[in-house]
Design a protein around this nucleic acid. Structure first.
Length: 872
RNA sequence: GCGGGCGUGGUGGAAUGGUAGACACACCGGACUUAAAAUCCGGAGGGGGUAGCCCCGUGCGGGUUCAAGUCCCGCCGCCCGCACCA
């Protein structure tokens, strides 16, 4: 056997079958050991896995296998985020049923994942497109409706008039539909919503407790929720025949600047705007223009501040006898605050731009520290710095914060239209979650519309509401709506003719609770609460940062909603979150300017100069920048090819080495080959060790031999730090530690042929430990080595090796010696040598005496067991 | 505009305020071989010196400290998220 190369192509399928037959990764809900739940974000079944998946699942698998070895009852499941638009597009393009396409893809991808040797409990596999899954989602939707967590309201949507469908904001490019190219309209549709905004404060507060999440993600969620505290303020209208309204309601976070107010601006979508526009053609035209621009978010940012004077005026709330003009302005949003603002141009840039354009007064009311009240003036930039209030009557001399308080009290005590004129209010940017999608390939919303009884939930006994399989996509729009019979039903209440809701659920709903379903994937209720509560929250969730906001926020909301409806008893679904970086690759371009895939390129090196040629034509190819793998730049590497060439272990190992997991990793051919060489190196080391073991019949684990002792120390230190690094998800450092240990063991194996038994014993122990350290990362190689070493059972089932604490401590330490902070030498002393003694030893060293050249040290800093610094 | 992150050899990257560059990739030299691959040994931040050694060095400029890649202040550059949020 020794001398043979390790053959992953032969060994990997073999061990996969062994694990499968032994049901090694099937976890039981009634296992008494402490649970550990590790989960990678489940994939969309697009057809093939990509390198991003390989990286994601390699990391998760290390964690899963490590905690198994640590004696935890590990749950490591896998499923499919199987609803969504690509399936419908495939259906349109190839005339295939979306379900057929999706299920084929799942089969293909499952085979790919299996070839990676992941420690997944496949008995818990779920696909969100199956009625067994979405039936429970429908059931929970009904529960949540009953709990008041669902509403139906009108909302503005991006409507593609050609495809006859609603588009998400990301699907609108330069104001046009991404597929049809048609100019997108804003339409009001009645849609279903989850009342996530009810939980805005809770979702915000609880972020503080999510210490296992990256700070970056928490900040992004905080910003997304967008809490702001301010004042809601009523401005009394000067009576006008154009409207019966008597006041305008405004939200502001800067009520302290009220004395600097010079206009009021309404949103184009404000109710009062609509009323006025009915009799004001100029205004109507302006509103229409705003709507045309409304969707193109790109143009919004640069759009000029524009407005139209309505003819109305309001009374200035604090300056007796003054009035302010009421405008409709394009920059005022209807869905934030009240859809109306007051403008204080001196201290808000947008208001200033607007005021300059329409010649409105600019009165500064906050004096920045150091500025002179007599000469301070506003030029082109609004001043938002803190300062002292002036030009403001009874607020003069107060700080901004004090003025906010004072003015709030002032307005609270006055009344307009029979209510307090001002009211402190908290606003959130977070809006309710619109879940209606006018598409076929999603979970049907379980609702029946009856002319007599209204909107009725489908009775639970009639669930699931199953998608019809016989659909056609020959007409644009929602295929479900076009189905000849599906939507026609009888009302469950009155029995009369009624019609089904034909909107389906946003696919984010599917992914907002799958982690809970995994805990009891075959239960006939959405969860078995006792089981879910035992497994959840997920101890370690791993996925891409692109889900930092929506998926993770929706899941946090959904968990709370499931708690409110009795399906789980927890608020936060993910205790630990890790967001991994992307997989990148160099790009290559031919002289004709076309992208060239890496498989068609051969790289050459002359010294440190790299160049590339096209394999077939021999023509030079330009090496371009390193980019995220993408089809358009053709810089993708197919995991299947890598597994076929080098084996899964090599791919996994390379993904874990080099780059820190949260950063992007660059896939290189050379790096993969390095990983593959390491695999062979380990195998050779094992073979050599076995040969040595055969020579020496007696294996001793003594520590009397220094060489043996040092080796054992290296081994135990490696076991210790690799474990710590895996727990901290610092896989690249764990890999470096393993390399170092391997180097030490290879050296020892080379020297050991005629060595004392203690050294062979230490080597044997070291190699066994090495195999165990490698097992979470290269499990197939580890099993092969484990068996070759004659160890019983599977390394997969072996407990994580114990560390002998005595071997972690050194009895001597080498202290670097600095003179004036520069390293000038080192000294080996017994651990714990008192500073005074170290000082004496250092000062007696020849080289130190030479460097000091007679100078008397002013000070000697001795950090015990760390460093010495002589200051002269 | 607001918020966050990053900047270290040819490259990816190590480094609880304590020997900067661990480990790997690429490179160079040597051994083995008819040859190549594989493997093994060795070299290597920059500069100076025959050498012992010396000087410089973590984007730039300051500061704190016995000691700074690390902490503080001010710049520059790159990346990411949000963005007319009142």
């Amino acid at each position: 056997m020794s001398g043979e190369r390790y053959n992953p192509r032969e060994m990997e399928p073999k061990w996969q079958k062994v694990w499968d037959d032994a049901r090694s990764f099937v976890s039981a809900n009634d296992d008494p050991r402490e649970p550990y739940y590790v989960l990678e974000m489940f994939p969309y079944p697009s057809g093939r896995i990509h390198m991003g998946h390989v990286r994601n699942y390699s990391m998760g698998d290390v964690v899963a296998r490590y905690y198994r070895a640590r004696g935890r009852n590990v749950l490591h499941p896998m499923g499919w985020d199987a609803f969504g638009l690509p399936a419908e597009n495939a259906a349109i393009e190839r005339g295939m049923n979306p379900g057929t396409w999706t299920r084929q893809n799942i089969e293909a991808m499952k085979a790919q994942l299996k070839s990676m040797g992941l420690s997944i409990d496949w008995t818990r596999e779920i696909a969100t497109c199956e009625p067994e899954y979405y039936k429970h989602q429908q059931s929970m939707f009904i529960d949540m409706m009953a709990a008041g967590l669902v509403t139906r309201k009108k909302s503005k949507v991006n409507w593609d008039p050609v495809d006859m469908t609603v588009l998400a904001n990301e699907q609108v490019i330069d104001g046009r539909g991404w597929r049809s190219g048609a100019v997108v309209e804003q339409r009001e549709l009645t849609q279903w919503f989850f009342k996530i905004s009810d939980y805005a404060e809770d979702l915000l507060q609880a972020l503080d407790e999510l210490t296992g999440w990256p700070e970056k993600v928490r900040i992004m969620q905080r910003n997304w929720i967008g809490k702001s505290e301010g004042l809601r303020l009523l401005f009394e209208l000067v009576p006008d025949e154009a409207t019966a309204a008597t006041s305008v309601d405004v939200f502001t976070t800067r009520p302290d600047t009220i004395f600097g107010a010079s206009f009021i601006a309404l949103s184009p979508d404000h109710a009062l705007t609509a009323e006025l526009a009915a009799n004001n053609p100029d205004l109507a035209e302006f509103v229409a223009e705003c709507h045309r621009q409304g969707t193109a978010t790109e143009t919004l940012e640069k759009a000029e501040k524009k407005g139209v004077f309505t003819g109305l005026r309001v009374k200035h709330p604090v300056i007796e006898g003054q009035t302010l003009p009421v405008y409709v302005a394009n920059f005022v949003l209807m869905d934030y605050g009240t859809g109306a603002i007051f403008g204080c141009p001196a201290h808000d840039q947008r208001d200033l731009d607007f005021a300059r354009k329409y010649d409105l007064p600019v009165v500064p009311v906050v004096l920045p520290s150091g500025a002179d009240a007599a000469s301070f003036a506003i030029a082109d930039e609004a001043v938002t710095d803190p300062g002292v209030i002036y030009n403001s009557g009874f607020l003069d001399g107060l700080t901004v914060d004090a003025a906010k308080k004072a003015i709030a009290e002032h307005f609270a005590a006055r009344s307009v239209d029979g209510q307090p004129q001002g009211k402190v209010e908290v606003n959130y940017r977070l809006r309710d979650w619109g879940l209606s999608r006018q598409r076929y390939w999603g979970a049907p919303i379980p609702i029946i519309h009856c002319e007599t009884c209204g909107t009725i939930p489908v009775p639970k006994k009639d669930l699931p509401v199953v998608l019809p399989a016989d659909v056609s996509f020959d007409k644009p729009g929602n295929a479900l709506d076009h189905h000849p019979t599906w939507k026609h039903v009888n009302c469950p209440q009155c029995g009369g003719a009624a019609r089904r809701e034909t909107d389906t659920m946003d696919t984010f709903v599917d992914s907002s609770w799958y982690f809970a379903r995994f805990t009891a994937p075959h239960a006939d209720t959405p969860t078995i609460p006792a089981v879910a509560n035992r497994w959840l929250p997920v101890d370690q969730y791993i996925g891409g940062v692109e889900h930092a906001i929506l998926h993770l926020l929706y899941s946090r909301f959904f968990t709370r909603a499931m708690k409110a409806t009795g399906h789980v008893d927890l608020d936060e679904p993910f205790k630990g979150l890790f967001t991994q970086g992307m997989v990148t690759h160099e790009t290559y371009k031919s002289s004709a300017g076309e992208w060239v895939p890496p498989t068609e390129v051969v790289l050459e090196a002359a010294g440190e100069q790299r160049s590339a040629r096209h394999i077939e034509s021999g023509e030079p190819v330009t090496i371009g920048s390193v980019e995220k793998m993408s089809k358009s730049k053709k810089n993708v590497v197919d995991p299947d090819e890598i597994v076929a060439t080098y084996g899964a272990d090599t791919a996994r190992w390379f993904m874990l080495s080099d780059s820190p997991p949260e950063r992007d990793v660059q896939w290189t051919e050379a790096g993969v080959e390095g990983a593959s060489r390491f695999q062979q190196r380990v195998w050779r080391l094992v073979s050599e060790t076995i040969a040595l073991m055969e020579q020496s019949s007696e294996i001793v684990l003594g520590t009397d031999d220094d060489e043996a002792k040092n080796l054992r120390k290296a081994v135990h230190r490696a076991v210790h730090t690799v474990g710590e690094d895996i727990e901290g998800l610092r896989f690249n450092r764990a890999v470096a530690q393993i390399y170092e240990l391997t180097n030490a063991l290879v050296r020892a194996a080379g020297l050991a042929s005629a060595a004392p038994a203690a050294r062979i014993g230490a080597l044997q122990e070291g190699v066994e430990r090495l195999i165990q350290l490698i097992a979470p990362m290269m499990p197939h190689l580890a099993e092969t080595c484990w068996q070759a070493l004659g160890k019983p059972g599977l390394v997969t089932d072996a407990p994580w090796p114990e560390v002998d604490p005595a071997l972690l401590v050194d009895d001597t330490v080498t202290l670097p010696i600095q003179v004036n902070g520069k390293r000038r030498g080192e000294i080996a002393v017994a651990k714990g040598t008192p500073p005074a003694e170290v000082e004496k030893l250092v000062l007696s060293m020849d080289e130190i005496v030479r460097i000091l050249a007679g100078q008397v040290p002013k000070k000697i800093v001795v950090v015990p067991d760390r460093i010495v610094n002589v200051v002269v």
